[in-house]
Amino acid sequence: MYEFFKTLDRRWIFLLMLIAVGLPILRGWQFPERPSPMVQSVFDAIESLPEGSQVWMAYDYDPGSQGELHPMALAFTRHCALKKLKMYYMTLWPQGPPMIQKNVDVLRNEFPDLQYGVDYVNLGYRPGYEGPIKLAVTDLRKTIAADVDGKSLNDLPMTKGLKNIQNVDLIINVSAGYPGTKEWVLYAATPYNISSVAGCTGVQAPYLYPYVPQQLNGLLGAIKGAAEYEFLLLEAYPQLRENPEAQEALRRMGPQLLAHLVLIALIVIGNVIYFVGRRRGDV
């Protein structure tokens, strides 16, 4: 047994991981969630906003992290739409506009009562890393003059009177890295005291905890954060239970469970081999 594991071809490990992730997807395993205080604070920050509040939806991610972030981005969109909040979408990532478009499609298909330009607006991508944030907090039109369709901000009811984003009620940031949550905290939330919540990748989440709760009201960490958030959303708005697309992150927790267990087993077996080898003088 020792020799078998010691010389194990790594492709067997790859296959094991493939099965661990693939099997729950094929079988459709899904589990109930227990929301953590962190996720609850994100939910409360949005839930407590009165109807018509302005939320700045900064969706800074790309296809490389959509597996982690897309479910939470859509959950934020659905929550804001159900609360009838005014949503302003923008991205600092060149690959971000198609990601925002999926959210706009959700609004168009699931919330046909909401009107473009009145209830939500898509401001698209702005290059310059943190540059557009610095301009958006002082004079929005110096970085964004029109929406994605080329309509002037002065011609859209939602943006007509919007000079900058200092007075928005909440910034919701979905972030895959740089520029992302850290930059929104550094250049908007902290200096101008704007309330903000974020959803981010697993790699980023631990680095953003020092900002919570003073500079960031709450944080959704990767797919688990999204699943807990979806769970809270389903509890508060039972009508979403009929929409399977609103339960994407919950479905993803099946593969997470099995893959985490496999990884733990691999670490344990690896260590057993190491200690047995050390005793035998192989290491």
Binding site: L8, R10, I13, F14, L16, M17, L18, V21, D62, P63, G64, S65, Q66, G67, Q95, A259, V262, L263, L266, I267, I269, G270, N271, Y274
Partner: peptide
């Protein structure tokens, strides 16, 4: 792009087995 990033799931498993001591 999405698949390129997802490949790390395989390599992180292999690394955990071989190097996490």
């Amino acid at each position: 792009q999405a698949t390129m990033f997802s490949l790390l799931a395989f390599f992180i498993a292999s690394a955990a087995f071989r190097a996490f001591r």
